[in-house]
Design a protein around this nucleic acid. Structure first.
Length: 425
RNA sequence: GGAGAGGUGGCUGAGUGGCUGAAAGCGCACGCUUGGAAAGCGUGUGACUCGCAAGGGUUCCAGGGUUCGAAUCCCUGCCUCUCCGCCA
């Protein structure tokens, strides 16, 4: 969340940011309301000051045994006025605050200005796209032939677009999760968290999923809980309302969770197979860092995600998202896309974002500087490291053999009972 | 689900109508001391917000209410703990 005070003194920056993001927010109107609010505030505060001091006087008069009725009458009046003004202030705040919650983060200066995905920049590529001397199948066909994913029966259990992994498919899923967690905890120094998969309204608002994305989430009405769409939600909110000593930073967390997304409005898009499913597994990375090095921390987080894909020997490319395509909370964001040989296209498997102090201000997460001084909002970052379903697509499609079997990436073999191949049984 | 207790600053914890933005301790910062550190001693130390400033205001889980005045009294909600019940 941007602070009103920040918007007030950086109106042009905010306006440009909104334009660059292709968003319509009436900043001037917002500021007008704010001005009115502050005017009322100074009025009501004067009255409150009067009430505070005169109430003290009343106390003293009574103590001395003197009559205070006249003053009391006066103060009754003042209190009524205060009540009225307070109500007006609250009315303005009730109008302004919901708008504030819908204003996205300011893009960093290194982010290309652009309208949509077409204006994103490919930063680099890694690995070589595999060549086949036969015509490669897509993961749907491969999974069906090998009997490792069963969409039909998942359909029976819930509804469309839920995966059900079976046999070696389930083991591959489990192996990938364990492999990624091991790399991040042992090699990249992240602390593993296994969080709740549900979160309440305040938590969802803290990371910025609410109020805008309510329609995209599964909601449990009875308790007003939501199924998390990403582990970013529990991992970042972990430190909501906390102030750290400076020497505790940086804090790195990683965690595996399933992710639940309704994908409202995307009906008819990527409907087959694992590309766009309502539930997928993901290993997430989250960092709490000091403002001065958060952009370096973003680069290293991106490297951590890349490391997973390099170890799996999966060809990928790095995309720097443009202003129009970036998520709500991000100030800068890289996507990682894997090449899938059967689909013959790139698939997004990670998104690494520096949210600067945007989420920290929403959840109030700060640190206290070493030499003393006011607490400072810290910066939060999150990145997938990486999302599973699409990684499974890439493994199946890129590692497929002519006989329909799948070669298991070397680094996964210890997690899969030493097997080297997924074969038809 | 039933009965009871409780939610106070970075933390522990006192406070039951004005003298309490909040004792005390811990922690933290600064200074003295020291070859250096520890200990000790002294001083300081919540957050948010309005204001150019002086100085205000708000804030003791949240929302209402009583009162001239609420951390303190009343109502509602949320959460935590203890006991009982149920149960993986």
């Amino acid at each position: 969340m941007l602070k009103l005070e920040y918007i007030r003194s950086n109106a042009e920056v905010v306006k440009k940011a909104m334009r660059d993001r292709g968003m319509k927010v009436n900043i001037d109107e917002l500021l007008k309301s704010d001005e009115e609010r502050r005017k009322l505030l100074s009025e009501v505060e004067t009255l409150k000051h009067q009430r505070n001091t005169q109430s003290d006087d009343i106390g003293k008069l009574i103590k001395e045994g003197k009559d205070a009725e006249k003053l009391k009458d006066e103060m009754r009046d003042v209190s009524e006025q205060i009540k009225g003004l307070d109500k007006q202030v609250k009315e303005i705040e009730d109008k302004v605050n919901p708008v504030l919650l819908t204003i996205p983060n300011i893009p960093h200066s290194s982010v290309p200005v652009g309208k949509d995905a077409k204006d994103n920049k490919v930063i680099r590529q890694w690995g070589t796209i595999p060549k086949f001397n036969f015509s490669p199948k897509d993961h749907l066909q491969l999974a069906k032939d090998l009997d490792i994913i069963d969409f039909e029966r998942a359909l029976k259990i819930v509804g469309s677009n839920f995966p059900l992994y079976k046999g070696m498919g389930a083991l591959l899923e489990r192996a990938l999760i364990n492999f990624m967690l091991d790399v991040h905890t042992k090699e990249h120094k992240y602390t593993e968290i296994s969080p709740p998969f549900l979160a309440n309204r305040a938590t969802m608002t803290g990371t910025g999923q609410l109020p805008k994305l309510e329609e995209d989430m599964y909601h449990i009405e009875k308790e007003d809980y939501f199924l998390i769409p990403t582990a970013e939600v529990p991992l970042t909110n972990l430190h909501a309302g906390e102030t750290f000593p400076e020497e505790d930073l940086p804090i790195y967390y990683t965690g595996y969770t399933p992710c639940f997304r309704r994908e409202a409005g995307s009906y008819g898009k990527d409907t087959k197979g694992l590309i766009r499913v309502h539930q997928f597994d993901k290993v997430e990375m989250v960092k709490f860092v000091k403002p001065e090095n958060s952009f370096d921390e973003l680069e290293s987080m991106l490297k951590n995600a890349e490391d997973i894909l390099q170890k799996l020997k999966l060809p990928y490319r790095i995309i720097l998202l443009c202003t129009g395509d970036m998520g709500f909370s991000a100030s800068k964001c890289y996507d990682i896309e894997l090449w899938a040989s059967g689909l013959e296209r790139y698939l997004e498997v990670s998104s690494c974002s520096n949210c600067t102090n945007f989420q920290a201000q929403r959840i109030s997460a700060k640190y206290k500087p070493k030499g003393g001084g006011k607490p400072i909002y810290l910066h939060t970052l999150n990145g997938s490291g990486v999302a599973l379903a699409r990684t499974v697509i890439a493994i199946l499609e890129n590692y497929q053999q002519e006989d329909g079997s799948i070669l298991i990436p070397e680094v996964l073999r210890p997690y899969m009972n030493g097997k080297t191949k997924i074969e038809k049984t």
